[in-house]
Amino acid sequence: MQDNLEKLVYKAKEGDKNAFGEIYKTFVKKIFRFIYYLVYDRELAEDLTQLVFLKAYKSLPSFLPSKGTFQAYLYAIARNQVIDYQRRKKELSLDEVDEPAAIFEIDNEVIQTENKNTVDKLLATLDDDDKQLIIWRYFEELQFAEIAEILNENEGSIRVKMHRLLKKLKERVEKQV
């Protein structure tokens, strides 16, 4: 699987769009899920997912396999894409523009209906940074080293953060029980 991915990445870097199509199909659900749980809007998550892959394609020449995995590269782009979106959203709400505010209200309704399952309940209580750590480590089963690559931090500090986060979650779950 990893060898095959490396070959596809190599071909895509050479401009082979079919190879990039295979990469897209491999990762599209993962990237969508990751974005969805940060923005809680299916349509928006789909649009941002497309942007992530478009950016990934455009900056493929700068991707170096020696510096990290392709998965980490994609997640890093996705994370930045969500941060950019949230920043723009904040700027718009500060400008008090009416139309986008109406859209956000609809989003909130979607969140409420979709928030019924347990995974939503848990993730909704976390801030974005903690949420990302849980998703990567426990839901997508990324290695600590890979998470460190995405966040451009060292592996040790990711382990410490994860340890603290689990402790915090444990306390919350015990309270609920």
Binding site: K29, F32, R33, E46, N117, Y138, F139, L166, V173
Partner: peptide
């Protein structure tokens, strides 16, 4: 908590984009 997260993982992975997408 880790067992709890494993159960939630199944829920998480059921989240998919639309058929059209």
């Amino acid at each position: 908590i880790e067992q709890h997260l494993k159960i939630l993982k199944e829920d998480y992975q059921k989240t998919e984009p639309s058929e059209k997408f």
